[in-house]
Amino acid sequence: MTSEAQRIEIEAERDVRLAVRTAVDAARSLGFDRTRSLMIGTAVSELARNIHVHACQGYISIETSRRGEAIGLRIVAQDDGPGIEDLDLALQDHYSTRRSLGIGLPGTKRLMDEFDISSEPGKGTCISVSKWK
């Protein structure tokens, strides 16, 4: 069950910062402590920057997530970029196309509790991550 989704289109670099700020604020208001809120912010920064660097259009959506008694934050990053050909390779540390250290995707996975990715070359990429309080 989810509610209150916020959606931020990623076109310019300031949209990346906006997405990060929005996610951190959402996490804080849900009661995540400072450290975990910044972890979520860092994950959003990775996802949003990937969209900014690799795709023409994309968005970040931030929504509260509930599973029974547990409450969490769910982030979805969707873009229309070139897609990822070899997902297994992309999820290994040190695989990098450009501009980053190649630890972004696996790093994002480690920062969050849940990580789902679907991508097809030419069709874009959709990544969904969640962190529970």
Partner: peptide, 13 residues
């Protein structure tokens, strides 16, 4: 600085 992602880290390195 509050957020350092892999892109930022690379630039610092």
């Amino acid at each position: 600085v509050e957020i350092i992602d892999s892109f930022g880290l690379r630039k610092l390195v």
